[in-house]
Design a protein around this nucleic acid. Structure first.
Lengths: 240, 240
DNA sequence: GAAGAAAACTGGACCGCGGTCCGTTTGGGA
DNA sequence: TCCCAAACGGACCGCGGTCCAGTTTTCTTC
C-alpha cells in the first residue's frame, strides 16, 4: 500500500474518524479531476467543499499561519465541530488543502515521464525528485510550515512516508550495498520544509544554491560523480 | 559568538526579555557548578530555582509531554506570569532544563579530549560528534521532543545553531571543496530528535544501526572510507 | 544607615484557540 | 412514510500566552 490517507492510524476524538482514513485512494490516479470525495453524504460533501473553499480564501487573505479552525467554520457558515469531524485537526485541514498537488506529484513519480517517473537511471531520478520537490515546496511553504505535524507524528505522516519510501526504493537501486532506509531519511531531511524555509527565507540563500546542494548531496551519498552542469559552490558564505 | 543564549532575538511579550538572552555565557566554562544564573534579583533567582526543581519533578512524574506551564507554576507556589517572564515560553522552560547537559556537551566539543574535542582529524571528530550527540539525545528524547520549537524557529534555536556551526567547521576542514554550510544541515538533520525518536521508538531500530548509519553517512559525505570496525547493514529491513 | 525613587519582579485575571462532547437534525435506503 | 446511521453545531474545557496593578529589591543621595 502506498498512500494510506492523510490521517494517523487511530483517532479517538470522534466516533467515526474523518476524511478517508485507511483507503489507498492514491492509486487510481486519472479517475477524474475531482475524485477527491469517496462516499460522503450529500450535506457532508457540500460542507467539505465549503470549508475548503473558505479555508483557501482565508489563507489567501491572512496567510496560513493565521488560519484558525473557528474562523474557517464561521466563514463556511458551519459549526466548529463539523470542521474537526471532517479533518480531524488543524494539521488535517492543511493536509487536505495540499492534497491536490500532493497527488499530482505522486502521480508524476509513479507514472509520469522520466527522469521523474520510471525509465531513467535511479541516480538521475533521485536528482530530479529533489529538484521537483524543492520547487514544489517553495511554492507552498506557508501551507507546509503551518501544517507540519507534531514531532512525534512527523515521520509517520502519510505523504512524507510515501515520498521517503520512494527515495528508499531509488536508493536501494542506486547503492544496493548501503542502508537505504537510513539514507533515505537523510535525503528527505534535506528537503524538509522547515529547512528550506530557514535556508531560503531566513538565510536568504538563492534557490539555485539549495538546488546545487541537493545535486551534490545525491552524488556524495551515492558515491557518484555529479553531472558537470551543476557548478559547485565552495563552502564560503555563512548561512546564519 | 558561539552561544547567544536560548531565547530568540526579539521578544515582545514582556518589557524585559528574560533569562540571559544575548550573553555568550557559554564561554567561561569551568566557572563553577551552578554558574547558571548571571545577575538576577534575589527573589527572581530563588523562584527560578524553585521552578526548575518543580518542573523536573513533574517531568519525572508525568513525562515531559504532559508538562503544563500552569502546573509548574502551581507546584512551585508561584504565579503563572512568573514562569513566562523567566522562560519566555514552554520551549524556553524545556530548553533551560536541558541547559546543563547542553553546556557539558559544548564544553566537551570545545576543550575536551579528542576525538570529540580538538586534536583529532576532522572526519574522526565528526564521527565522534554524531555518536556522542546520538546517545545524549536518546537519553533526553522526551525533553527534546516536548521542547522542540516551532518550524519557523527550529533552525535559529541557539543550541542547534551552535552544534550545526561546529559541524560546518569540521566539514570545511575535512572537505574544503564542498558547500559545508549545506552539508552541515544535512548531517545535523540525521541527528534530529524527531528522527531519532521515529527510528528507535516507532520503528524499533537498534541504536547500533542508527550509529552505524551515522558513520556511513559521514564517510559518504566526506567521500572517505569508513573505519572497518563499523560493519555495514545492507539495506534490507523496512523501517516503517 | 535612612529615605525616597526607579527598576525589576510578581501573580492571577484574562484572552484566544485547538480540541471534545453530546443533544439535535437530516439524508437516503427500505 | 418511517427509521436510524451519519452529520451537525455550539457549549464547553484546558492550556499557552499576555497584561497590568501592586509589591519587593536595589540604587542613589544625604
Amino acid at each position: 500500500m502506498l498512500y494510506a490517507g492523510f490521517m494517523s492510524a487511530s483517532l479517538p476524538p470522534f466516533p467515526q474518524p474523518q476524511e478517508n482514513a485507511g483507503s489507498p485512494e492514491l492509486l487510481q490516479l486519472g479517475t477524474g479531476p475531482d475524485a477527491d470525495e469517496p462516499c460522503l453524504r450529500a450535506d457532508a460533501a457540500r460542507n467539505r467543499a465549503r470549508l475548503l473553499e473558505a479555508a483557501e480564501r482565508l489563507v489567501a487573505e491572512h496567510g496560513a499561519a493565521a488560519l484558525t479552525m473557528e474562523a474557517v467554520a464561521t466563514a463556511a457558515c458551519v459549526g466548529k465541530g463539523t470542521v474537526f469531524r471532517r479533518f480531524g485537526d488543524r494539521t488535517g485541514l492543511l493536509a487536505a488543502m495540499l492534497d491536490h498537488s500532493e497527488r499530482k506529484f505522486q502521480a508524476a513519480l509513479l507514472t509520469g515521464p522520466p527522469p521523474l517517473g520510471p525509465g531513467a537511471p535511479p541516480v538521475e531520478r533521485l536528482r530530479a525528485f529533489g529538484c521537483a520537490l524543492l520547487s514544489r515546496s517553495v511554492d507552498q511553504l506557508d501551507l507546509l510550515l503551518a501544517g507540519e505535524p507534531s514531532a512525534e507524528r512527523r515521520h509517520t505522516f502519510a505523504p512524507r512516508r510515501f515520498l521517503r519510501q520512494h527515495v528508499a526504493l531509488l536508493l536501494r537501486e542506486a547503492v544496493p550495498d548501503a542502508d537505504g532506509e537510513l539514507l533515505s531519511h537523510t535525503l528527505m531531511a534535506y528537503l524538509d520544509a522547515a529547512l528550506i524555509h530557514h535556508l531560503t527565507r531566513q538565510c536568504g540563500l538563492p534557490a539555485e544554491r539549495v538546488r546545487a546542494g541537493w545535486i551534490d548531496l545525491v552524488a556524495r551519498v551515492t558515491r557518484t560523480e555529479p553531472p558537470d552542469a551543476g557548478a559547485e559552490f565552495p563552502g564560503t558564505a555563512e548561512t546564519d
